[in-house]
């Protein structure tokens, strides 16, 4: 009451006490629809972002592995054979024979198998079994020669000799 009385006596009382602002036509009728469109637009990126958040670390990890692989593989693939070849050119004795389809290699392998069982130590051991009374270190060249002639064919002897 007192407040109203104060207003009536004040300059405020001479001004219409009503809202002087307006809005565009049908603003309140369409606000709800516009707001619905906005909420749909707001929620769409959230779903997409959720998937992104799940896959981002996985994709990042895969990309890191790919990068590390690329950084290691490319230099090794391109430069290591060259370095290895240069090394082999300087140190030819270190060549590793790996050509399994090479005829020479097969031949060498067969010769090795034939004579691997007939190295000097085995010959001496066999001779010792034949004649226990004879000491291995007392064998003469003639005795060894006789043993070889008796136990191996000419072909085997020639092949071994060539080797």
């Amino acid at each position: 009451m007192k407040e109203k009385k104060e207003h009536n006596e004040s300059p405020l009382s001479q001004i219409k006490r009503e809202n002087p602002f307006g809005v565009p036509e049908a603003y309140f009728d369409t606000f709800s629809e516009r707001w619905n469109s906005r909420i749909q637009a707001e929620e769409r990126p959230v779903t997409r972002q959720r998937w992104l958040n799940i896959f981002k670390p996985v994709v990042g990890l895969a990309a890191s592995f790919a990068l590390v692989f690329f950084l290691l593989y490319v230099p090794l693939e391109n430069f290591l054979p060259q370095i290895w070849n240069n090394y082999l050119a300087k140190h030819p004795g270190n060549t590793v024979q790996t050509a399994a389809n090479d005829d020479n290699y097969f031949e060498t392998l067969m010769n090795y198998q034939v004579f691997s069982s007939s190295d000097d130590l085995q010959i001496l051991s066999t001779l010792n079994e034949v004649d226990n009374s004879m000491a291995a270190d007392s064998l003469t060249s003639q005795q060894i020669e006789d043993y070889i002639v008796m136990n191996y064919s000419d072909w085997e002897i020639i092949r071994n000799y060539n080797q």
Binding site: L12, Q14, I15, K16, E18, P20, F21, G22, V23, P24
Partner: peptide, 15 residues
């Protein structure tokens, strides 16, 4: 600059 202001001069002064 408000294009939707519909009041009179006195109301503008009050605002």
């Amino acid at each position: 600059a408000d294009e939707y202001f519909e009041g009179d001069e006195a109301q503008m002064k009050l605002q």
